[in-house]
Design a protein around this nucleic acid. Structure first.
Lengths: 121, 121
DNA sequence: CTAAAACCTCACGTCAACGTCAGATGCAAG
DNA sequence: CTTGCATCTGACGTTGACGTGAGGTTTTAG
């Protein structure tokens, strides 16, 4: 597969794919004319990368995690890192839930104005 | 209250408070010497701002939402905006949950190597 | 064979929420 | 009075994940 097809199937930009390679998250082959050649599995891999990015992992961490997804083995000390990231994600989820609740209050108040109006500031 | 105290009580930097003012999220008074003077309610307000930022709202949206939190009334069309943001947060939460699950698989595999090793790419 | 896509490599631009530094001023204490 | 910390106003720096344009090459369709 060439870069455009991968981009479309994975739902990312061509630029993003080149960026991933620059960050050592992908290592596509090169065809005769110097064009990138991806295996079919690359699409799933890109989706995984996106998911990890969405979780707030920096590319450095993604680069460390990817080999472990393949091999099922972790480099020494990586397990701690993984759990640290997991904790970060969990905290982020909690924060988002709290923020959503705050928004819900605002929305509810907006739908039918409450009797007691805060006059904060 | 002066800016340093607000910063400490709200758990943010002094710079952040000046930035919020620049973005029209706070309008502190000015004392004789030109120093900012905050009411006690400012601490809670800053915490709210932080929470909305944590939810991924840009300062523009926060600026729109804040008056409604006070008044309980929404500007026309804002309700749609609020629900759009709510939906965005919900999607974000779902993404994070999915990503966390992915990490959990990696962590589990790392703890005791699995029989079947993916050889993705 | 040729025109149009698609691809290539630099390399600078972007955006948000601050960090940080410089140089000047204000404010409370001894 | 002066020492010293808090605060002030600019204004440039940072970070990450790309966007975007320039200028050239490769591949594909007709």
């Amino acid at each position: 597969m060439r870069i455009g097809e991968v981009a479309e199937k994975a739902g990312v930009s061509v630029r993003a794919l080149r960026y991933y390679e620059e960050q050592d998250l992908l290592q596509p082959d090169r065809g005769a004319g110097g064009q990138r050649q991806y295996p079919d599995t690359a699409v799933a891999r890109v989706r995984l990368i996106q998911q990890l990015f969405a979780a707030g992992l920096p590319s450095r961490s993604v680069r460390e995690v990817l080999p472990c997804v393949d091999s099922g083995k972790a480099a020494p000390g990586l397990l701690d890192h993984l759990e640290t990231e997991r904790a970060r994600i969990s905290r982020r989820i909690i924060d988002l839930l709290a923020a959503r609740d705050r928004l819900d209050v605002v929305i509810a108040n907006t739908r039918n104005p409450p009797p007691h109006c805060d006059h904060t500031q």
